[in-house]
Design a protein around this nucleic acid. Structure first.
Lengths: 218, 218
DNA sequence: TCGAAGACATACTCACTCGTATGTTTTTAT
DNA sequence: ATAAAAACATACGAGTGAGTATGTCTTCGA
């Protein structure tokens, strides 16, 4: 046989390397425009190597999604379990979320934008199960934030709009970084902290109760 | 010859119809996965019709971008020229911007997400001029918002973070709607107003000076 | 040491799609 | 009415890319 079900350490590393290369190409060129040959070439290899670890192109795509969501969860869930106050907790979660987006940019870019629909109507409704699995993961993740916002709203910290609706612009302000951000070769340490703090502060202010409408100037 | 340079009324309508169909397919399937035949089929026609009005697939893509930016500009620029106070002006601009996103969803989805890079490295650096043209349009548009934010900050209304950086989460909170929003068959009038007001309020609160950090509860 | 499985590379097929070239019908000007 | 141009449809050519089948080298356990 040929499938590499024996997930040894080396095999996991090999898969990860492929996922990274694929993610970079997916974000640069899009899913369909990225050929398996191009992924292999980026690794100094050929198709044989890729198809040894993944059974199809779509399989690579979905594994990127799973990896991205798993890493976000690993960072954010522990914070959600802590007993900080809702504002402090939410701010810490937002920092962790955004930090992971920037640290793992290629993979997170593929995951965070609504690109899964590529394979929905396409290829005649295959991958329905995988699609639902990914949507399930994202829903569960978003729910973690929604609950904190909900609790914060009940305790009077946040706006009392529907929490599920508030998560949208909240994630929007943060996730949009995957659209506009281009990693520089230098000047990343301090600049990134500035970006994170600005975006997180923006998002935190956004869900705050609005005390009054547009006052504060002469 | 065959090129339809005579932009009569009917020709403009025919082109618009093609742009609409193409935009819907681009957002559902992605650029490369959308075949010209699929676009034609959606119109009950064949390739001949499409290639009569557009000289290439990329041409359709760029025309979508131009149309999207032109419509946003047409709605927002007049407001920017008015002499409202910075907060009122910015809020009105945000409403107009978001309203156009929802009213023209397929085309705006293609435009608003960072999908232009599809054709950057791909196809060996053709379309460099078109790419720069589109980026120029978006930059100019973003600048309109940046200036209002800048003025508002100088007058003490808004946060004093760099305006160019503040536009990012501002647009993020609004533009993210193109990622999560799915138009329902019914229940659109009131629901859409709710969405618009929630997102615009969120964005407006986000750029406000933060008076203090996380207070307002028991 | 040697055979089997692991880890790829190479060669090939099949399906699909862009763009073009050419045919056909409908509209329009005279 | 008729010739010409517009507005398509149809047929085809060439290229590309996913997936497969098979070959080759390397590692590793007995």
């Amino acid at each position: 046989m040929s499938r590499a079900q024996i997930t040894t350490d080396a095999a996991i590393a090999a898969r990860e390397e492929i996922l990274q290369a694929a993610a970079e190409l997916f974000t640069d060129l899009g899913y369909a425009m990225t050929s398996i040959d191009a992924i292999a070439e980026r690794l100094g290899a050929t198709k044989g190597r890729v198809y040894y670890y993944f059974k199809s192109k779509a399989d690579i795509f979905f594994d990127i999604q799973r990896a991205a969501m798993a890493r976000l969860n690993a960072e954010v869930e522990p914070i959600a379990r802590s007993n900080l106050s809702p504002p402090d907790k939410l701010r810490a979660m937002a920092r962790a979320h955004l930090g992971m987006l920037l640290a793992d940019l290629p993979i997170q870019k593929v995951s965070v934008q609504g690109l899964e629909r590529y394979l929905f109507h396409a290829s005649g409704y295959r991958y329905v199960n995988e699609l639902r699995e990914i949507n399930q993961l994202r829903d569960t993740y978003e729910q973690i934030f929604a609950e904190v916002i909900d609790q914060g709203a009940r305790e009077g910290y946040f706006s009392d709009m529907p929490p599920r609706l508030l998560t949208k612009p909240f994630f929007g302000a943060l996730n949009w970084v995957t659209v506009w951000y281009r990693p520089r070769k230098i000047q990343d340490a301090e600049s990134n902290r500035m970006i994170v703090e600005t975006l997180v502060s923006f998002a935190m202010q956004g869900i705050q109760k609005d005390i009054n409408d547009g006052a504060g100037a002469p």
